[in-house]
């Protein structure tokens, strides 16, 4: 049984929680041209991704706007998996096909047949270890292994969207319910609880992880979104590079983290003001179950984006005092 967002959130931070995120999309890129193809598609340097590892990346359009943010898994030089947002599966697939050109790649959408179960929290390793012979100790953060969980072919990835140690499991959908139940059973003595997308959102927000459609969109490029570590202008040419070079030279906006000084809860789209002048808007906001404060991220004029800047958030036509703080609110606690 699901409980409440706060309970699920705190359980993830202190014990472990299991999330059904099968709605996420999985796109396979296979063939000799995979590396050069992906190098053109993403803003990060695919050559920096080692075999058996995954990393966070961004796909842009020619204007530098964000098509999607995703995780890329490198099985070998000729086989990659892109894990994309549910709402953008079709768009991403079309975007990849449209830019396939002469690259020697095959692009497959395996989203419908693939289930994804995340087990996150300090107890996650002990729980999953009960169900697999593969020694999870060997798996470092952002490494993955094609192995089995109770005889079911599974990709076990040590990664997640919560700021805790944990695993993302990819398996055939036919086996998902059985594996889900078995994990729940194995997790009983570790106080494992199922958690939903509400907790997933507050967990990622404490870590300042972007969520597509909020911090990122076709109108918000990754530089403005504050994830410039994903943009490698010095690598080979890629879609959106020219636009991003230009944006970098005269960047006007930046996504920042803030916390309310007064009691209150910032929400998406609330206006951000500095000295009564509108300087931006909240992209995500919530009550942090860990800090017990109103926290959020906002896209603001870069001239007012310094840490320590005092700002106001307009909540139902009342101004609430807030201050820009360093990202994230909660640092990764895993291995």
């Amino acid at each position: 049984m699901y409980s409440s967002v706060i309970d699920e959130h705190l359980t993830t931070r202190t014990k472990a929680a299991i999330f059904d995120v099968s709605h996420m999309g999985e796109l396979m890129i296979e063939g000799k041209g995979s590396i050069t193809f992906l190098q053109n598609m993403i803003t990060r340097d695919i050559n920096k991704l080692k075999q058996g590892r995954c990393f966070y990346a961004v796909m842009c359009n020619n204007n530098g706007g964000t098509i999607d943010d995703l995780f890329i898994y490198r099985f070998n030089d000729n086989k990659f998996m892109l894990v994309v947002n549910a709402g953008t599966i079709d768009k991403d697939f079309k975007h990849l096909i449209a830019n396939k050109e002469n690259y020697e790649v095959e692009i497959k959408n395996i989203s419908d047949e693939t289930a994804k179960i995340d087990v996150q929290g300090p107890e996650a390793e002990k729980i999953i270890q009960k169900l697999t012979r593969y020694s999870l100790e060997e798996l470092k953060r952002f490494e993955f292994k094609e192995t089995t969980i109770q005889n079911t072919q599974t990709i076990i990835s040590r990664s997640g969207y919560t700021g805790e140690d944990g695993f993302e499991l990819y398996l055939k959908k036919e086996k998902a319910a059985e594996i889900w139940n078995n994990i729940l059973e194995a997790g009983k003595e570790h106080n494992l609880k199922p958690a939903g997308l509400g907790a997933r959102d507050t967990l990622r927000l404490e870590c300042c992880y972007s969520l597509y459609g909020h911090e990122l969109s076709e109108h918000i490029n990754p530089l403005e979104a504050g994830i410039s570590f994903t943009v490698k202008l010095e690598k080979q040419d890629f879609i959106g590079r020219k636009a991003l070079e230009k944006i970098k030279q005269s960047q006007k906006k930046l996504n920042i983290a803030f916390e309310l000084v007064e009691r209150g809860i910032p929400r998406e789209h609330y206006k951000v003001l500095k000295d009564n002048k509108e300087i931006g808007y909240v992209t995500s906001g919530t009550m942090s179950p860990i800090l017990k404060k109103g926290i959020g991220m906002a896209l603001v004029d870069i001239d007012h984006s310094e840490i320590g800047t005092e700002i106001d958030i307009n909540i139902r036509d009342k101004l609430y005092k807030a201050v820009i703080v360093k990202k994230p609110f909660y640092s990764y606690k895993g291995k």
């Binding site: 409440s4 967002v5 706060i6 309970d7 009691r263 209150g264 009550m287 109103g294 139902r316």
Partner: peptide, 8 residues
Amino acid sequence: LTDVVFVE
């Protein structure tokens, strides 16, 4: 509502 976290 579940957890009430703020009342204005």
